[in-house]
Amino acid sequence: MSENTATQVVQEMELKEVGEAKTGSSPDEVVIALSPAFGDQMHRQTLTKIPHAAILRELFAGIEEEEVKARVIRVWRSSDLAAIGFDAAKLSGSGISIAIQSRGTTLIHQRDLVPLAPMELFPQAPSIDLSTYRHIARNAAQYAKGDHPSPVPQVNDPMARPKWQAIASVFHIRETEFVKPDEKPVELEVNFKK
């Protein structure tokens, strides 16, 4: 049993743009919105070297387990997580979105909220592991179904700031260079490679 943990199943993926992201009409979908450099643009992994492909796979799994559908888009106009999540929530048929940045920071948003007040925010990217991503997706799917899950428990690491803040800032600055302010959000097709 060498390949029985989730991290080892998927390392790579292919993201294919399939046109402008439309507003969804099915109430059983959660939109996963990627930041401009997520996946195939820059590093392909987070601050803590979790492959972006593995994260997307866990998000898909969490949503599928709740029998809800996932749709992936990329938001080009901003690298700001709240803006990405809010744009995506407005495109989501259920009004629920998950937004994720290259460094790993994540949130769950809802279209009726104000942009800077998401449903759940996971600000400390270094302390999010794959099982937490699965849980985040599960919660998002439950919100889409009109349930009220308990918020995903978060590890608060007081050393995360001194240890990661500088490199996280660099990550963000680099990511912001990929922003295309006038570009509309695009729909993505995801193919995992073993």
Binding site: Q110, D112, L113, P118, Y143
Partner: peptide
Amino acid sequence: ESLFHIRHEDNGVQFFEEPLDPSLFARV
């Protein structure tokens, strides 16, 4: 029932101008 309205236990509905706090989403 949504971030803009609640249904009381007697089935009466009350609307809000501003969205409610996200922590209240879908809750009793």
